[in-house]
Design a protein around this nucleic acid. Structure first.
Lengths: 249, 249
DNA sequence: CAAAACCCGTACGTTTCCGTACTGAAAAAA
DNA sequence: TTTTTTCAGTACGGAAACGTACGGGTTTTG
């Protein structure tokens, strides 16, 4: 590990800050970035790539730059549902921020992309050393918590169309294009509904001119339309993320 | 404030540790307890008493001793659903642990009781001073987060009966008796379902001999029966709470 | 003690979504 | 290219839960 760290410290391997696109890495004080940088590793994140397994130790923290991670809660009878998504605004490995070393949920790339990762140990070391880093990571964790709470709200109160619209907006926020490369099947798994139900809902969106669909991909045409469908089930976590990442020290 | 703190420091007002029933207060190192004790105030928590209002600054942290707090997420269109409950195992004011001063959700006493509270400022002061206190509070926060995630799972995948059973078990865990003093109406609000739906489900439980019901109150007769109804939707947050509060420093 | 408010039992038509399954078309593998 | 696999479209009966509402009993209020 010290050897690796040494290697990564060679010029050109330690990432320059200008290349970074993850919002947490760009937002943190330079001193904190310097703490992490020697251990950061650029990684390609292929779709379906698993980053966390429930109950198992977290090996790496992933700072997503492109693509979307799905965090999925699973229970003993294998019921599962997505409790949050992570993109360039966030990171995986939230339990590490709380001093835990195990993953609670299943986490995997729902939409492929890339990011920077560092070993869990290096991350917790850095946390121990920097109060400002801790503060930022806790804000990020809180933002994720808010997202989870509103997922619970949507799951309990919103209709399929509203939930689907909400998901599309959250994905869109985290992508650089209007194209969402996903099958109905995977959308259905995340929302915990039938695949056929997603198909029908997407047709409705398409008929209304909100999206265009082709096999394995759908494209947002009218974000405003989708927002109208999602109604108040979308927005609060996003506004809170902004607030948490903007104000104060 | 300094005057109040002074008054509370008079012998007999600073709570003796033996009287404390909140699990966090009893579990923390004596040094941390000493940090909080001068500011702790014994309070009666009447049912429906509001402890947090979404968007508003958190005034006090409540360490619940008896009774149950409902934490309810609300959106712009006033859709609402419970995202977690807090009893003697926990505390309110989680955002303070993360360095935020505002309440995300609505929080109020669902079942009346009592607890200890201290002003938010005193709490954050103590947090700043003690790393062990921070560690404990973060574990508590994480436990709550896990609960919220599994609420999202239950909301999306479980049937009304399963969700109701889950709720009763969570309430039972936090009460000292088998009696749950609640109307169908309030159970319905928390689960985000019809009052009539709760009535029918409770009848089913009663017919099977799992509970006894009277106006405004129901009594658990067969916890095992209720557990069987809840299935795997109950248990993980409880096991994780135990794990988080048991192991390590 | 009467009036009002609250709580629960029950009902009915309706909406939403499920489980299941078959099909053809498109893409990937052989 | 041919075969296999994956994906989307569609359908149907049924379960679950909804919105609404009425009535009767209990508790609280005036």
């Amino acid at each position: 590990m010290t050897i690796e760290a040494g290697l990564k410290s060679i010029d050109g391997v330690v990432p320059s800050r200008a290349d970074i696109r993850n919002r947490l890495l760009t937002k943190m004080p330079i001193s904190d970035f310097a703490l992490l940088a020697p251990h950061l590793e650029m990684v390609t994140l292929k779709e379906r790539q698993v980053v966390e397994v429930p109950g198992r130790p977290i090996t790496h923290v992933y700072f997503v730059e492109t693509g979307v991670v799905s965090v999925v809660a699973v229970n003993a009878e294998d019921h599962r549902i997505e409790v949050g998504v992570i993109g360039k605004e966030g990171m995986t490995g939230v339990p590490l921020v709380f001093g835990d070393d195990r993953a609670q949920h299943s986490a995997y790339m729902q939409i492929g992309g890339s990011g920077r990762r560092l070993p869990a140990a290096a991350f917790t070391d850095a946390l121990r050393q920097s109060a400002t880093l801790r503060a930022l990571m806790m804000k990020s964790a809180q933002a994720f918590m808010i997202q989870t709470a509103h997922t619970a709200l949507a799951n309990g109160r919103a209709k399929l169309e509203e939930r689907l619209a909400r998901w599309l907006l959250m994905a869109h926020d985290r992508l650089d294009s209007d194209a969402v490369p996903l099958t109905h099947e995977f959308l259905a798994v995340m929302l915990g509904v039938r695949r056929a139900g997603v198909t029908v809902a997407l047709h409705s969106f398409e008929r209304r001119g909100f999206i265009a669909a082709r096999r394995g991909q759908l494209t947002l045409i009218s974000r405003a339309g989708i927002e109208q469908v999602a109604g108040s089930f979308y927005g609060i976590p996003e506004a809170e993320l902004k607030r948490l990442m903007t104000d104060t020290p």
